[in-house]
Design a protein around this nucleic acid. Structure first.
Lengths: 212, 212
DNA sequence: GAAATTGTTGAATTTGTGTTAAAAAACCTT
DNA sequence: AAGGTTTTTTAACACAAATTCAACAATTTC
């Protein structure tokens, strides 16, 4: 019983790796190779490969979103939380598997309704996440919004997405640190708040480290 | 002599349509169908299909960039030029073939060096285009930049790109007009300038219409 | 307008991919 | 450990796509 769903989870991870490596037009054999089993074995668990691909992409999106939610949950200061959220929304490098998956999906969404819905939902949830942070900052009087929070939130997520693509394409001068700084610059302008600069590792200093 | 290159131009257009419809993993047969000839005939002109695909994508990018340059050339007012450039950088709908092509490419760039270079070059040229407009506006004292022009230009192109993807995915509330307005909102904030609002058609009013 | 060239087609071949079924292996269960 | 179930593999097959090539059609050249 549990074995079956464990195996399925393995296959989803393998499919994610395969999609990241070969694109959304990945072949069954390539997924099988990534999973280390024969293609027939995959077909045993997923008679329809499209189902596996959708689940793999959905799971990747879900993980990307939830990981960030968990990371920022412990940060109470709105400015710090905003900066951390931004720094977590940009891939560290072209080899970031999660963002690679999302970028593969972008083009597919123009053709495939399911992926369009999934990506749109992810975008909207990320917008909601930023709106929460912005509104929190307003209530605590650390942010003074130059635009309504929906506008700022939509633009922040859009910037994240776009710089993800730039980093995937290995832009020679626009690396992780510059991308985060570019988004932070917009956030500073829109919130009239001096957001903390990321440290060397690219992340803002977690609140806990203040105790040292 | 001329016939040969005319034919090749036809095939490039056909390939662009086929890529927009079927994605970057488009089949030779699908290109042949789009071109209305047999697959062997295509192979006669392009023994290596990858060469055709690269040329098709490159030509699509080139056209997208040059079209905008031509459209904005006649506008002398920096604010109008900036607004028009923004309105031309966002697809009118999910069926926009040029942007569809670019979106297909986004995911491919993570895997294929050639496409990474092409897309990066397009991005940088668009950034340069915006920087020219911004610097012009500063010299004419209609813009007061809140950030350096490279930062603003990079963010403007990034916003364009990202909203292109959203529109391709048929976001239910984020359509062409809202996307343009979102980008304009950032541009207004960054230039401290009240940029003209787009008219009903989504374009800003061309300067010539003032003579009416 | 005949010959040479250029361009296109359709059929044959090869290769890759997905699908299926029977047999083998791994794994429970009692 | 025997029997039954689940999972996996191997091999055969079907099908689609890429590639090649000989024949044919169109175009150019003289």
């Amino acid at each position: 019983m549990a074995r079956k769903s464990e195996r399925k989870a393995d296959l989803i991870v393998a499919a994610q790796r395969a999609i990241a490596e070969h694109g959304s037009a990945v072949r069954l054999n390539q997924i099988a190779e990534a999973a280390g089993i024969s293609s027939s074995a995959i077909l045993y668990h997923y008679p329809d490969i499209d189902v596996l691909l959708v689940e793999a992409n959905r799971a990747g999106m879900e993980r990307f979103y939830n990981e960030r939610l968990n990371m920022i949950a412990s940060i109470t200061d709105p400015a710090e939380r905003l900066a951390l959220t931004i720094s977590l929304g940009v891939p560290r490098g072209a080899d970031d598997e999660e963002v690679r998956l999302l970028c593969s999906l972008g083009g597919e969404a123009a053709r495939n309704m399911i992926y369009a819905v999934l990506l749109t939902s992810l975008y909207d949830r990320q917008v909601g996440m930023y709106q929460n942070i912005l509104d929190l900052g307003v209530r605590q009087e650390v942010f003074t919004l130059a635009q309504d929070s929906l506008t700022i939130a939509r633009n922040l997520v859009a910037l994240e997405d776009a710089y993800g693509y730039r980093i995937m394409a290995k832009h020679p001068t626009l690396d992780y640190a510059s991308a985060v700084e570019l988004i932070l610059d917009y956030a500073r302008l829109a919130t009239a708040s001096a957001l903390p600069a990321p440290n060397k590792s690219g992340h803002v200093t977690p609140i806990r480290s203040k105790e040292n």
